[in-house]
């Protein structure tokens, strides 16, 4: 099975898309937040690879073409943002203030919990950039002396958790304003959360896209200060 998978150009992509559709169907059937298509797809793909003893490399020899599209797709997030330029201008103060507060909350609460759990300094700086987009977070972690693969894992799990829990958190904290919902998703769970925000609406998606950029920059600027605190 593994040798077929590693030779096949379409196995990885087909498995990924198939698992995503199963996730989407489950969500439609049960309408529960836990049935998040992305979360289910990841779990099913992992289960499939383990059951049929297929190496990740074999799967990824095809699936990597999906990852390849991530850069052009992220670039295209500029289009919804441009369409919402008027809203962006009108609410600039609220947008910047809430994103600064969000980035500080992220790093502040990582600091607090690291102290609480008695993590080492290296583990603390590994988690420090966990709310921002992967490539920026990796850079920050590396610069501060964190464990980069662990940072990547934390960032991706944060994104998927945010994507899955977003609906519930918005309801729980009575966040109904589309701009506020988008900013919350982008600042807490970067591009993966943005994918969910985009499904809520273009304004939500645009604000979430903006948050990826602004929160990333704030975190780059403030992380070395936070790194000195513990």
């Amino acid at each position: 099975m593994d040798s077929f998978a590693s030779d096949s150009a379409f196995f990885g992509v087909a498995l990924t898309l198939g698992c995503y559709w199963i996730g989407a169907a489950l969500k439609k059937r049960f309408r529960l937040a836990i049935f998040n298509p992305l979360l289910i797809a990841v779990a099913l793909c992992i289960a499939f690879l383990l059951v049929f003893r297929i190496d990740y490399q074999s799967y990824n020899s095809g699936a990597k073409y999906l990852s390849y599209l991530l850069t052009p797709a992220t670039v295209c997030l500029a289009l919804p943002l441009y369409r919402q330029l008027e809203k962006l201008r009108k609410n600039l103060r609220a947008i910047l203030c809430s994103l600064i507060a969000g980035a500080l909350t992220s790093m502040g609460s990582v600091l607090l919990l690291s102290m609480l759990f008695g993590l080492s300094h290296q583990e603390y700086v590994t988690f420090l950039p966990k709310s921002i987009t992967t490539a920026i977070g990796m850079g920050v972690s590396e610069e501060l002396g964190g464990i980069v693969p662990l940072t990547v894992a934390a960032i991706i799990i944060t994104g998927i958790f945010g994507n899955a829990a977003g609906d519930l958190v918005m309801k729980l904290f009575k966040i109904t304003e589309p701009i506020a919902k988008g900013l919350a998703m982008g600042s807490a769970s970067h591009a993966i959360g943005t994918a969910r925000a985009m499904e809520w609406g273009e304004l939500e998606g645009a604000m979430s896209s903006l948050s990826i950029v602004i929160s990333g920059i704030i975190t780059v600027a403030a992380a070395s200060f936070f790194a000195m605190l513990y």
């Binding site: 609410n91 909350t105 609460s109 919990l113 944060t158 958790f161 945010g162 729980l172 769970s189």
Partner: peptide, 19 residues
Amino acid sequence: AMIVAVTIAVMAVTGRIAQ
């Protein structure tokens, strides 16, 4: 624990302040 708590906290703070 960290991922769950921090993600919810950031969403709530950013969203509530913006709103």
